[in-house]
């Protein structure tokens, strides 16, 4: 099922048009979205580095999770709210952006990785809270998290560029398929 009709409808709503045309609200939402990286990913990275055993080794893992966790969650809420506004302002182009799509894939994988960590190896954290050898599965969770969040950030940044936009025809069938472009079979090359 394609969400394109929904995005087209969204793009026609008054709120979306107002946001799209606003001189200040859009740039402010975008800035908040970028600045909150510091809280959300910045503090998240500290935890990942601790899981890898390369930072704050003398600090218990539980102390980091309990004391930084609420900041990371709050950061995520701001990220999601400002990100939704950005999507709402430009729904169709964003929906058909390969970078937005790869960002969403990275985001889902990162959430999955966090869930696997918390419901798995973290349950036994009492045994390795301050241990010199960190369980392999905890290290792996930290490493995977770093890679996936880097993927989210880079994909997110590249949404701004129009390299693979649907109105840049002709482009490869693979890009069109990934972006969900609706291409007329007899579109003359530009």
């Amino acid at each position: 099922m394609s969400l394109l009709p929904f995005c087209e409808w969204l793009a026609g709503t008054n709120g979306s048009i107002a946001l799209h045309e606003s001189l200040y609200v859009y740039p402010i939402a975008e800035s908040v979205h970028v600045w909150t990286l510091v809280v959300f990913v910045g503090l998240g990275v500290i935890l990942d580095l601790r899981l890898l055993g390369v930072a704050l080794r003398s600090v218990p893992v539980t102390e980091l999770v309990e004391r930084l966790g609420p900041w990371v969650v709050a950061g995520f809420v701001v990220m999601a709210a400002s990100g939704s506004l950005l999507f709402y302002a430009v729904p169709v182009r964003t929906y058909q952006s390969v970078w937005f799509r790869s960002k969403m894939v990275f985001l889902v994988l990162a959430a999955l990785n966090a869930w696997v960590f918390h419901s798995g190896v973290y349950r036994s954290v009492a045994r390795w809270d301050l241990a010199t050898t960190i369980p392999r599965r905890a290290k792996l969770a930290g490493a995977i998290s770093l890679v996936l969040w880097a993927g989210v950030i880079l994909s997110g940044r590249f949404i701004a560029y129009n390299w693979f936009d649907c109105d840049h025809q002709p482009q490869s069938a693979l890009v069109n398929a990934l972006a969900g472009c609706v291409v007329e079979p007899d579109t003359p090359p530009r």
Binding site: V34, L37, V38, V39, V41, G42, L43, G44, V45, I46, L68, W149, A150, I153, L154, R157
Partner: peptide
């Protein structure tokens, strides 16, 4: 931008 996230984390911590 990636380094921005890390420097922010290191400062904020």
């Amino acid at each position: 931008l990636l380094a921005f996230a890390v420097i922010g984390g290191a400062l904020l911590l």
